[in-house]
Design a protein around this nucleic acid. Structure first.
Lengths: 204, 204
DNA sequence: TTTTTATTGTGACATTATTAACAAAATATA
DNA sequence: TATATTTTGTTAATAATGTCACAATAAAAA
């Protein structure tokens, strides 16, 4: 299964559809959606086709609400998704305050840090010592975790999470985490993202 | 030119090579690098080949220092790259404190915010009103910007940056920015990154 | 020295992704 | 009602990317 870009595009379409809806529109054509998402209309239709979204009507386009329902089904947006956050440094704190997750029904239910001074209830979410991961993961049935610790501790945290049956990890430490192949890891290296932007900008 | 994944992989190789070097190694084989970067050795060699990195020696592998030099040439790491940051909210503050940029010779030379209470010298970097963008961009010859404002203001900021001759933008607002095609934009939507992780985790 | 072994770099092949083309169908117009 | 127009969904064509296979060759072993 090699659908990485597909999935990313679907998520962008979702964003665009929500925007259109907020603007009061009720239907879109693949052309409109393509414009907004910066892809060709054919690409939009192809992506829909691949995910068996076939509720468009020739000459009448797609009902935005129907598309959003289909996308919500694909992305299982019927209930909240609990995730935990390890590391309450710069990035961790920013993520714990980030407003965008709530709209996606993503809930950071707890955070963890080794620094006792950060283990407090004064943040929006409770911050525990990392030893408590096991307990919280079981209590809230958590399958997804965010790693936002310095790179020296990242692999250790990763191993601990996997030992506690975490299935997917988004990693903000600038290191390539090692994991068994049944654990999915999404590495976001901010400096590399900047580098790649700089590369494309200077070499365009 | 469609080298997006190539470039990302080169950056990961770079990371891995630095790690190997710190561990005291002097040479690597494509096999080692592939293991560390989670790609096949053939992929490593193909990527090198594409960027005309051909300093490997059969049976003797690659000298790490030589590879790092080649990568530094590709990514123009001979001097600092000045960038500006617009928006000193959660994400903006985290980015302004992020240690990882310095090692990559990426320097956030100034930040901007519309909120006067944030226009202070008490952060690590000076924070100016957005009206000053023009002046700072000229003074530091800035070509790259980071947008970390709420989505309602993001397009306006983007337009202003482009009017000031910014060539590349990394955007943390959850919105697809519109730009002329000579301006390269790297959208990082944290909620979408989480969603895509969740999708792959639950559908693996 | 000769033989064996290991590893690179690349050309051939396979897979995946994107673009183009177009029939089918719904709407609009005459 | 008949005709023209528009837009979808899919099949076909093209392009891009990744994997495999292997000759070339450097190093190690015999």
């Amino acid at each position: 299964m090699y659908l990485k870009n597909n999935i990313r595009r679907l998520l962008v379409y979702r964003q665009c559809l929500i925007k259109f809806k907020e603007l009061g529109f009720e239907i879109v054509y693949s052309y409109n959606l393509g414009c907004e998402a910066n892809v060709s209309p054919e690409q939009v239709r192809k992506d829909f086709s691949k995910f068996e979204i076939k509720e468009g009507r020739r000459k009448a386009g797609y009902k935005i609400d129907h598309l959003l329902e289909s996308l919500d089904t694909i992305f299982k947006k019927d209930k909240d998704q609990n995730v935990i956050l390890v590391g309450m440094g710069n990035i961790g704190k920013a993520l714990s305050n980030y407003k965008g997750f709530a709209q996606h029904k993503i809930v950071i239910c707890a955070a963890f840090d080794i620094d006792p001074s950060k283990q407090t209830k004064s943040y929006k979410i409770p911050v525990y010592p990392v030893e408590n991961i096991s307990m919280i993961v079981k209590r809230h049935n958590v399958k997804i975790a965010i790693i936002a610790v310095p790179k020296s501790g990242a692999q250790e945290v990763c191993d601990r999470l996997i030992a506690n049956d975490i299935q997917g990890i988004i990693n903000f430490s600038p290191i390539n985490l090692k994991s068994p192949k049944n654990v999915y890891i999404n590495n976001i290296d901010l400096a590399n993202e900047m580098e790649s932007l700089i590369y494309f900008t200077l070499n365009k």
